[in-house]
Simulated assay, not measured.
Amino acid sequence: MTIVSQQALQMKQVSRGNYLMRNALKHNVIFNEGSKGDAAYILTEGKIEISGVIEGHKKVFAILTPISIFGEMALFLDDGVRTATAIALEDSKVIVVTKDDLEEFMRESPKVIASIITVLVSRLKTTTRKALKVPSIGLGVVRILDLFSTCGKMELKYDATVKTLSDTFLTTPEKIEQYLLGLADQGLLAVGRDQNDIRIIRIRERDMLNAVMQNKF
């Protein structure tokens, strides 16, 4: 997410009282690896260390400074646990962001979705495969597509979408295409070409997540 977008998010939502601003003193743990994830955080002041345990040893994945979003995978995946630990390296302030908070903001400002996905891809590329284990890649794909449809973005470029999703979930483009074909078979999306003969994905179902869960995808 760009600094401008995150500042807009912070100022708009905090001023309306929708977000909880949390103080984290130096050495405070924001969340632990293995704990249940139910919110993301926006760092507005201070410094946060993101780390995990790899083969019995601590591995630092990132040192975050304002303005940064972290813990964001909790907003996209069901039944997931935290894949890293977040600790304040100095006195810090963070905004607690629930999935409902994020979706409400994006309904009002659909353009922010592209920035959110950029953050996801950038963050995930810098961590290890172990730290990126998710309960279901298929469900993760559905959640991201559902986020697009919720914001009214019903048409996506095929090649770019496949590449972004494969990079995000550290899997092959072929595997992502299998999931997309499964959704197409259910009639939830269609693959075609636009007026410029560019291959695209058309999302047919605005409440894709609910539709997929009903079909037990």
Rank of each mutant, 00 (worst) to 15 (best):
K93D: 07
A160I: 08
K125E: 12
V162P: 10
G37L: 02
R193L: 09
N196W: 09
D207A: 14
I137E: 02
S109D: 08
E108H: 11
R199C: 05
V4D: 15
F76K: 11
F217M: 13
L20D: 11
I198E: 15
I87R: 07
T172A: 09
M106Y: 06
T127Y: 09
P110Q: 00
N210D: 14
G46T: 04
V97E: 06
G152C: 09
E49W: 04
T150A: 09
A190E: 15
S5A: 14
P110G: 01
K133G: 12
T168K: 05
Q6A: 12
I137D: 06
D167N: 15
S51K: 00
G71M: 07
L147F: 02
E104W: 08
N28R: 10
Q195A: 04
A24G: 08
T168C: 09
L77R: 05
F61T: 02
G138Q: 12
L25E: 07
A86V: 05
S136P: 00
K58W: 04
S136D: 00
L147T: 00
L124P: 10
K12R: 14
S51V: 02
M21R: 05
I69S: 11
P110S: 03
V97K: 02
I95P: 05
S15H: 12
M213D: 12
K58C: 01
T83A: 03
R22I: 05
L165M: 03
F217A: 12
G80K: 15
E49M: 06
G182D: 08
T128D: 00
A190P: 12
Q7V: 14
D185P: 10
D146M: 08
S166A: 15
L25G: 08
S92P: 05
G56R: 09
L25W: 06
G192V: 02
K99N: 09
R143N: 15
G187S: 09
K111F: 15
A39P: 03
C151L: 08
T98I: 01
R107A: 04
Q186A: 13
E49A: 01
I203Y: 00
L189Y: 01
L209C: 04
V121F: 02
I113H: 10
S35V: 03
T44E: 06
S5G: 10
P135F: 02
E174F: 12
A40H: 09
G71F: 07
T128F: 03
I137S: 01
N28E: 10
I63S: 04
Q6Y: 11
P135K: 03
V81H: 14
I137H: 00
L43P: 01
D38Q: 01
F148I: 01
K157W: 12
V96K: 15
G80L: 14
T83L: 06
M154F: 00
K157Y: 14
V53I: 11
K153Y: 13
Q178T: 13
K153N: 13
K163H: 11
A86W: 03
M154P: 05
H57P: 04
D159N: 08
I67A: 13
E72R: 07
E174W: 13
L25Q: 09
S115G: 06
T85H: 05
I95N: 07
K36A: 11
R129F: 00
D100K: 13
V119A: 12
I69E: 10
G80T: 15
T83E: 05
T161R: 08
A114Y: 11
Q214F: 14
I176W: 00
